[in-house]
Design a protein around this nucleic acid. Sequence first.
DNA 1: AAAGACACCTGGGAGC
DNA 2: TGCTCCCAGGTGTCTT
Length: 281
Amino acid sequence: MPELPEVETIKYGLQKSIVGQRVIGVRMRRKKLRYEIPGDLPIKLLGEKIVNIDRRAKYLLIEFEHGQMIVHFGMSGYFSVCAVQTPIKKHDHVLIDLANGQSLRYNDTRRFGLIDWTNHNTTHRLLAKLGPEPLAPSFNPDYLQQALKKTTRPIKLAIMDNAVVVGVGNIYANESLFMSKIHPQNPANTLRPESIDSLCQSIKTILTQAVKAGGTTLADFQNADGKPGYFKQSLSVYGRANQPCLACNTALKQIRLAQRTTVYCPNCQALTTMEPNDHDN
DNA sequence: AAAGACACCTGGGAGC
DNA sequence: TGCTCCCAGGTGTCTT
């Protein structure tokens, strides 16, 4: 499941392999992913040169001379770069053939991803309301404190909200909260300043480590070279329900929070606000 | 206005 | 072995 580090990994891979190439053919094998793919995408792309690969949140932005293709990988999307004559794989939905004999192929088993096209001079509706990048200076404790004081939502949901900070998905939300010893159900507006400082730093640290490691290895994920990332081995809580906490040996607890699996250490990550029924359902 | 619920989709695993 | 059921995940949209 590509989260920010995975998309960053894909970006690096594609920057090395396809920038400067010109499109000589587009094969659309499916009209709709999460949304309808623009029907005129092949016309827009044909003859265009790829000038840059960028990323915003979990969106990959492939910049051409006269516009950019916006790609979101959803749960199971990935790009592969292979020879044009390579047999098409199941779930290869869009194939972009390049002048150097290679083919950039979007594969997405569950089709939660999206592909769209926009002109350079318009902000795409999906990019318009995004909060700061977690690794940018604008995401800092002061900002986070301002953003969190407005909401009573559980802190885990707040940091997964793209309007607060982008790119923090379920895995890294769990990991960041563990690193900062914050209970995922803690109301966002009750965190102490030192906790917010810590959380801000944890998010940056976790994501930086994951980017360096090339993204988390999960069954659905491959980077552009087809090599898996290597971050899964350093996950502390995600996927480790009922196993001992790496810090204190207490059995990790798993709950559901807004339909999402949430794992934490009930000892290290204590709720700061105690109420009679706070025994986690 | 904010927050929760739901839809979208497939493959893999559990349970029978 | 094979069938059915449930779950994973991101995020836009609908409902409360």
